[in-house]
Amino acid sequence: MARNLATPTEAELGGPRSVLVMQRRDHQRLDRLLQRVAATAGAERQETLTALCRLVFPHAFAEEAVLWPLLRRVLPDGHELTLRVEQEHQEINELFTELETTEPDTPAYEELLERITALLRADVRDEEDILLPRLQQVAGVGTLRRVGLAWMVVRRTAPTRPHPVVARRPPGNSLAALPLSPLDRSRDRLDQLSRRAPGRIARGCGRVSRALAATAGVVEHLPPLRRGEDPSTRA
């Protein structure tokens, strides 16, 4: 049995539809994006950070909604294992939220980026070296592929921006996805349009995007969206 996910072939991990293979692909793409963030500046770096967010947050949401509940059911120490990763996810959400309001290319901004990069890399190591190999030990190929399908569906419909207020566990995070996913994805389209449109249209897109952001900020504070979370996640 593989000790981590770094070296096994796709076949050894259950094939291309296995959740282990899907997770590793996302982690490989994450590594490439982090390298690009470190090597770029200005508008190119901002575009790379946008792509990073669109990868990180749906990926983490799918883990929290699909994978970690499964691990808590099938592993005697599943609660402790997943809690550590949920705490990392919470900190990543908080740091990205702070980054959004920090002036780019300042020492404070660079420090936040360094902390985010280190935390994302630590999160990958915890998952590939500990959690996912443990899942492979207790789940057959059929289960890995069924979970992979559920993970992929959730990932493709999940929120795409940081929401540090909502729960990192069901049912709160599942409830949060219903309003926050369309709000986030509408903002993504508006922001993309504003970068390409002439000035007046771009300003209009920006105003609508900010209004949607304010709506999301109100929604994520609704009490039901905090249900299910372990209190120590925010310690």
Score class of each variant (00 low, 15 high):
88 E>P: 07
73 R>P: 03
40 T>S: 12
78 G>T: 06
60 A>Q: 03
64 E>G: 02
54 R>S: 08
77 D>I: 02
78 G>V: 04
91 E>Y: 06
61 F>H: 04
62 A>P: 03
54 R>I: 13
56 V>P: 00
90 Q>T: 15
56 V>F: 07
48 T>P: 02
79 H>R: 13
38 A>C: 01
64 E>V: 03
69 P>Q: 05
58 P>D: 01
57 F>E: 01
84 R>E: 07
43 A>N: 07
50 T>W: 00
52 L>N: 00
84 R>Y: 11
57 F>H: 04
81 L>E: 15
71 L>D: 04
42 G>M: 08
81 L>C: 13
55 L>D: 00
83 L>Q: 09
87 Q>C: 12
84 R>M: 11
41 A>Y: 11
53 C>K: 09
67 L>G: 07
68 W>M: 14
56 V>Q: 00
62 A>V: 13
87 Q>D: 13
70 L>A: 14
76 P>Y: 06
60 A>F: 06
84 R>A: 13
47 E>D: 09
64 E>A: 03
71 L>E: 10
58 P>H: 00
38 A>F: 01
50 T>P: 02
53 C>I: 15
77 D>F: 01
58 P>I: 04
67 L>H: 14
41 A>E: 05
56 V>Y: 02
44 E>M: 13
65 A>V: 08
76 P>L: 04
51 A>P: 02
86 E>K: 14
88 E>W: 11
40 T>Q: 09
85 V>F: 07
80 E>P: 15
61 F>R: 00
70 L>T: 08
85 V>T: 14
59 H>F: 10
43 A>K: 07
58 P>Y: 02
85 V>S: 15
69 P>A: 08
85 V>G: 05
82 T>C: 05
50 T>K: 02
56 V>M: 03
42 G>K: 04
53 C>Q: 07
47 E>C: 12
53 C>W: 02
90 Q>I: 09
69 P>K: 06
39 A>E: 12
69 P>Y: 04
83 L>M: 12
80 E>F: 10
41 A>H: 13
51 A>F: 12
38 A>D: 13
89 H>R: 14
87 Q>P: 15
70 L>S: 14
44 E>T: 09
72 R>Q: 10
68 W>C: 11
56 V>D: 01
57 F>C: 12
39 A>Y: 05
70 L>W: 15
80 E>H: 12
53 C>M: 13
45 R>Q: 06
83 L>P: 04
47 E>W: 12
37 V>Q: 02
78 G>N: 08
85 V>E: 11
61 F>M: 10
80 E>L: 07
88 E>A: 03
56 V>I: 08
57 F>S: 10
90 Q>S: 13
86 E>W: 07
91 E>K: 15
62 A>R: 01
55 L>P: 00
